[in-house]
């Protein structure tokens, strides 16, 4: 019997629940730590970013309209599906990582899955912790309720490939935001595989959109897009981040970036309910109180 031919995966973008090539038709080589070719990833364009924002916009209200319990169940299922593909994730992380051996890759994958579980648990609790009844000088009930801001653009951290991405994405969508993620430019493959698990986990189409490609080309249209409500620029360099923040300011887009402590990806500090709060807006409700 002849030797089997390799069946290689085409790593595509994830936009509106579909795996798509770029409208520009381009791709770019993704190389491993040793310089070997791992795959060709889609080189997205500003129009892909635009399409992703449109998809995120139309999905957001539906997602926010789900019950908190339902969102929690769905996020927990993401973790379940990732768990069943741990080997694949670990192999992908190991190939991409600089000086990353098998056991480190396995540890990163496990930590990423655990982080999904952790945030899934917060889905029906964060509103209680972050909101509350306020004492006011008048015959009113006064309640603060955190509500999702809307569409969040996430510039994912460059490395390592998986855990930082999950750490920034999960707190955004748990409250009912939708997200447009610019995957790591150097190691985007794990992000695409993560998209496959999202597609299998009842996450409604368009809630998470993942665009791959060159940061220089993709960050400006995302930052300048008026329909993006908040930006996580953790993955931007200093200069690029400052430019993006200036662009975002023109349309009053809130800008968030991970602190040094939050960038210790394996630490407790990298996960926090206050990260959920960073992508929420507090609504205050006044209700007259009877005597």
């Amino acid at each position: 019997m002849s030797e089997r031919l390799a069946v290689n995966k085409t790593y595509k973008q994830f936009i509106g629940g579909a795996f798509e090539r770029s409208e520009s038709g381009r791709s770019y080589p993704v190389v491993g730590a040793g310089g070997e070719l791992l795959a060709h990833a889609v080189q997205g364009s500003r129009k892909d970013v635009r399409d992703a924002v449109v998809a995120a916009r139309s999905a957001q209200e539906v997602w926010a309209g789900r019950t908190a319990y339902n969102r929690g169940q769905i996020l927990y299922r993401v973790a379940e599906v990732m768990e069943s593909r741990r080997g694949e994730f670990a192999a992908e992380v190991a190939r991409a990582g600089d000086g990353c051996d098998g056991s480190m890759a396995a540890a990163e994958t496990a930590a990423a899955i655990d982080r999904w579980v952790w945030y899934a648990g917060w889905a029906d609790k964060f509103a209680t912790v972050l909101g509350g009844a306020n004492p006011v000088a008048g015959p009113y009930f006064n309640l603060s309720v955190p509500e999702p801001v809307g569409v969040v653009g996430i510039v994912a951290p460059g490395e390592p490939p998986l855990l930082p991405l999950v750490s920034r994405l999960a707190p955004v969508i748990v409250s009912g935001n939708s997200a447009v993620v610019l995957a790591s430019e150097r190691c985007p493959l794990a992000a695409v595989t993560l998209a496959e698990t999202l597609a299998l986990s009842d996450v409604p189409a368009g809630v998470v959109n993942i665009v791959t490609g060159h940061r220089d080309e993709l960050v400006p249209p995302l930052a300048g897009h008026a329909a993006v409500d908040s930006l996580d620029l953790t993955g931007c360099g200093a200069e690029q981040g400052a430019d993006a923040a200036r662009q975002a300011a023109a349309t009053i887009t809130r800008v968030v970036s991970a602190s040094t402590a939050e960038r210790q990806w394996f630490d407790e500090a990298a996960q926090s309910p206050y990260l959920i709060d960073a992508f929420c807006e507090t609504k205050t409700v006044w209700h007259p109180k009877g005597r």
Partner: peptide, 9 residues
């Protein structure tokens, strides 16, 4: 403007 707009505007 060179910027993508939002419907609410």
């Amino acid at each position: 403007s060179g910027r993508y707009q939002r419907r609410e505007y």
